[in-house]
Design a protein around this nucleic acid. Sequence first.
RNA 1: GGCGGGGUCGCCAAGUGGUAAGGCACGGCUCUGCAAAAGCUGCAUCGUCGGUUCGAUUCCGACCCUCGCCUCCA
Length: 474
Amino acid sequence: MALRLFNSLHRRVEEFTPLFPDAESVGFYCCGPTVYDFGHIGNFRTFVFADLLRRYLEFRGFRVNHVMNITDVEDKIIRQVAATGQSLAEFTGQYTEAFLADLATLSCLKPHFLPKATDYIPQIIDLIQRLEQRGIAYRAGDGSVYFSINKYRACGCCYGQLVTLDPEAQRRTERVSGDSYDKDDLADFALWKARVPGDGVVFWDSPWGEGRPGWHIECSAMSMAILGPSFDLHLGGEDLAFPHHEDEIAQSEGTGLQQPGRPFVKHWVHAAHLLVDGKKMSKSLGNFFTVRDLLGQGFQGREIRFLLISAHYRETFNFTRDGLEATRSALARLDATVAQLTERAGSEVPETSTPPSALEMSFTEALDDDLNVSKAWAVIFDWVRETNAALASGSLSPSAAAARLQSWLRVDGVMGLGGRPVAEVPAAAIALLEKRNAAKAARDFGMADTVRNELKALGWTVEDSKTGSKLKRL
RNA sequence: GGCGGGGUCGCCAAGUGGUAAGGCACGGCUCUGCAAAAGCUGCAUCGUCGGUUCGAUUCCGACCCUCGCCUCCA
């Protein structure tokens, strides 16, 4: 079996095979954040998903070259810079840092490259010049440079690879029709925006005068500069499919830099939105939570991560507080099993090259199927139950436990949950535990229960077993 | 208006032409001084109405509800 993924380009599930079989690594690009504010967990759903796919590709033996851009020049940023009086780098720097911190909180591996748009102005200008030379880009009366969809089509290229669009049937919103553009065609999009007073100090010199890059061209420039004109995987939120990704294809393939027959991107993957109360989580609706918000409410990054990868990436997922709390119980069960396994394994170390276990085989089968995480979780929880039963019956030898543990660790290398951070047991709690043990030994159960309540107040629960009593963090 | 997703147990969520995974919650039992944890166990005919079929939740049609994209957006 091989990994199969839904490809937005063909609207069907396809086997994933590298574009260049002999290449050292797989080119993997995910549209990153626009750093004008803290990201909300809807944004992070896409990034956590990208991390999951990257980890799974690595689990499946691919080397991945993971690129995620940081959009650090854009309308909202410019407005904020003007309003705060900060420099562009100062303003975007703080949110870039926050973004990376949040990514780490959610146990996402750091992408190998995190290019910033403003570091790629020369490459952007170069791309636009190429398009100009090929007659696809044109300068309009307002000084801006636009991409001509008609000229692009005249070159034999296809605009409309990711979505089927009938321009005549499109609704003309007030916003679009009301704007005064100097574009040849309403559907054309900006490659280079001429400087306007509102831009303040945010502008660069270019062959077309002072200005700044259009949003779509930034991704084309960064991805091709790092991964080459053709690469394997491009991910992003589903809202980016049109127009952003469609325009990216047009600009990139419009340059003619690809080898004949090679596409800009072989495999497009889009992550569905996170909903809140059935509505898309978004800044404009105000129905969003940031990672920081949830951390402030006492939730852990790994709990948020678990929730975000508990549903299939192509299905919208309804985020609720109850869901996040349910996640905590499920994770606690998993943690308890892993902790027991660790204890039983003791110092037993399995060979590093143990063959894939039944858990790993079923897990692989589930994720090979277009990253069916629901199926994968079912496999994992079946394994938890089975392992608990073996643990309880005492039939698990230390080496068997060690093998199981290692198998789980490999699976978790993909899920990225990690263990629950171990909490130091305070001396007061230890003293109480001893006091309760003494009371129990004396069959003074009233006292034992009183002490148990005191422990509970301290945030610890007691679990009695044949081998003694243990403290567990609540 | 155009295009594309969804409607499966209280909640979340897989899946299949032959009566439905998993998680959370809930009930029962075992274990326990009592609990907790764990195990066992119970709990759904799959939006509505038609059609095709020996048989449909799964295929087809209609309808209802809902979400997204078409505009900055993960």
